[in-house]
Write a protein that binds this DNA or RNA. Sequence first.
DNA 1: CGCCTCATTGACTAATCTCAAATGGAGTGG
DNA 2: CCACTCCATTTGAGATTAGTCAATGAGGCG
Lengths: 249, 249
Amino acid sequence: MTEPISAAFLDNPFARKLTAFVALSPSDLSVVSDLYRRRRPYPVGVDMIHQGQSDHSAYLLASGWACSYKLLRGGARQIVDFQIPGDFIGLRSVLFRTSDHNVEPVTPVHASVVTQTELLNAFSLTPRLATAVLWAASRDEAMVVEHLVDLGRRSASERMAHFILELNMRLRLVGLADKAGFACPLSQYLLADALGLSAVHVNRVLRELREEGLMTFQKGQVVIDNYDGLVALSSFDRDYLDHDGPLLA
Amino acid sequence: MTEPISAAFLDNPFARKLTAFVALSPSDLSVVSDLYRRRRPYPVGVDMIHQGQSDHSAYLLASGWACSYKLLRGGARQIVDFQIPGDFIGLRSVLFRTSDHNVEPVTPVHASVVTQTELLNAFSLTPRLATAVLWAASRDEAMVVEHLVDLGRRSASERMAHFILELNMRLRLVGLADKAGFACPLSQYLLADALGLSAVHVNRVLRELREEGLMTFQKGQVVIDNYDGLVALSSFDRDYLDHDGPLLA
DNA sequence: CGCCTCATTGACTAATCTCAAATGGAGTGG
DNA sequence: CCACTCCATTTGAGATTAGTCAATGAGGCG
């Protein structure tokens, strides 16, 4: 029941993302397509992964956005990362049992559950797929480190610019953005929790960037008015997003 | 040439750390001891791992402290993590090829180089050791996430308190600290680069914590005057430091 | 001694937060 | 269709946190 490769490629962001790194074989692609076909909806407001839970399943995000975050005493929260179509959710919690944070949908989401057994099974059957998945995991890790640098050493507007550029690169990989902009369902509160700012200040920063002709984020749409300007402002260096792959396979 | 286990345990921080997680067999311990015996000195001021380098070797830190960091345009730097005796340096760069940051000694260091081949070899020969090492890697990752939360959502004094408590827990695991304090070779500049603060503000925060009877950091010595007070201030939760182990082995 | 680096402190400045209020859809019930 | 509510966005004013600049001290070392 293998579909034509081009079809799997077109509507399956996961296949699209992974093939950007390794040339997957038809049998690899059919595993991916099987997973993709199994997707179910998850509503906003219900955690997909909850801090400290023992059920270590992972998800393959087919459509919609999610975020992983930690809550602090006092109600504050820090968003560690956003997940977009094609991303693995909770991969580390399956590989490493590190589910010390929550994951919840930002928009209504379609995702396929992957159990630990299935994943390890798929790894032994399709080593190239395993390689590709581990590559994706190491890329995620590099993004967390870069996020840490953002919070520690960049100003609010640099952070915002850097964040938007990173998101843009990630979305382009799955065909959901181009250099001119993309649809973005994140509220200013979500941006604030990710960038370590207050929502009020996020609003001011967005206005500032708009008035300087760099980018416009309104009504769920990011328009990049001056790409090079944003790159210069945030000293964005895309290297960390397309490094070499993993060795363990 | 296997040494008595107690000897390996006592002067080898790496064995000490790993045995806190899995009971290593005599043959596991002899592998660890062999590595430990191979250690060489590395002076302060010379990078052990340099951003973008292609030689993907890792180090086992036997004595001294190191730090991994990223540099920004403009000279600012962000320290991602400190490495203390018993820690792996650049483990991820061997497993994942993610050497997108620098590592340099903070004090004169003794460490053993581990090549990729050796590591993978040791993994297949001593699976329990592999399990233990991957556990350590996933713990490191949890620390990076917690560090990110620090920078994004905690005030300067909360950050400092949290940092000191985490360091304390880590050092206790290798017998270099107890609940009352520890020797700490970090300058206020290093603390600043790790905590995303200016050195001047680090100094003020330390004074404040001292005056409030919480902790005293002077002359390379951290004295914890009020442990519970620090825990309360920083909402420190040690769970992320002793979670369950990895599944891949 | 002279030269470092690190720690300490004060005075001032800049970035960001908090509080508060106004605006503007989008949906909902009547 | 209108009144109403809810929620995200927007803006202003003032408070707070943390940064910058500058000067001084204290210890280590050739």
